[in-house]
Amino acid sequence: MTSAITVSVLMTLIAASTPLLLAALGELVAEKAGVLNLGVEGMMLCGAVAGFAVAFSSGSIVLGLAAAALAGMAAAMIFGVLALSLGANQVATGLALTIFGTGASSLIGAGFVGRTVERLGPIFPAALSEHPVLRLVFGQDILVYLSLALVACVAYFLRRTRAGLILRAVGENDASAHAIGYPVIAIRYAAVAFGGALAGLGGAYFSLALTPMWADRLTAGRGWIALALVVFSAWKPGRLLLGAYLFGAVMTLELQAKAAGVNWLAPEVLAMAPYLATIAVLTMMSLGRRTGRLDAPACLGKPFSAP
């Protein structure tokens, strides 16, 4: 491969990894607080359609991104009310959220199918962002840099700050955290809201950056892969970054196969690859684990009601 092709394959890989990284990082924080929100795919679709609709009608991509984060957060709040306040089963509520996001985005997006918006572009001046090699570093859009910065921020927050310690305590032992006087439900709401905002941005990455055109169900199950990535990461932000980029590589297999001159594989087989890889990775994680619980937060998925 020539360096121009290598650079362009890497650019595509980064673009494919970014929405996964955003959504998975948000879910990681929610799960660290003990909440299993299976609605990532639904929140991504809400963000994708809200971002597109606002960017399309206002002409401002920044407003679109803000709307995406807010829509993801609003969807997460529905989950919060049902699963956190009313104590509904988290698995059922998360599934409901995904079905809801799919329906809502199809309905709102019905009028936008095939419409286009201006693509989310690089933030650095053209001299840097269009340089044949340096564009790898300087040619990215704001969400790529944001996602990488957030990995560092979340890692620092969880490991080094008092608030992060409290959040982890809520996820590891909600009853004790409550007994010490921490507002378990409020902290979980905050964590779920953060997860929703990042999932919304991850979804908007599809509709505003990857293909700046509306298509129904354009996230194609990436929200579920993000959930698997959190397991893969063993709830550690650094490993999550690695996992997201590995999966980005698998998802761009089709393009890479073309670049490498492989054309005997059916496109459908390449389209299956990310999902098969997810199963393979989850299996290997289980084979390789030493402890019984895969390092999951102890209260993950369990409802909490103050005694």
């Binding site: 409901a96 079905i99 809801f100 799919t102 329906g103 809502a104 199809s106 309905l107 997006g109 019905a110």
Partner: peptide, 10 residues
């Protein structure tokens, strides 16, 4: 639109 059915079910 047909998509309304899905939203309604959710």
């Amino acid at each position: 639109p047909q998509a309304a059915t899905g939203l309604f079910q959710a």
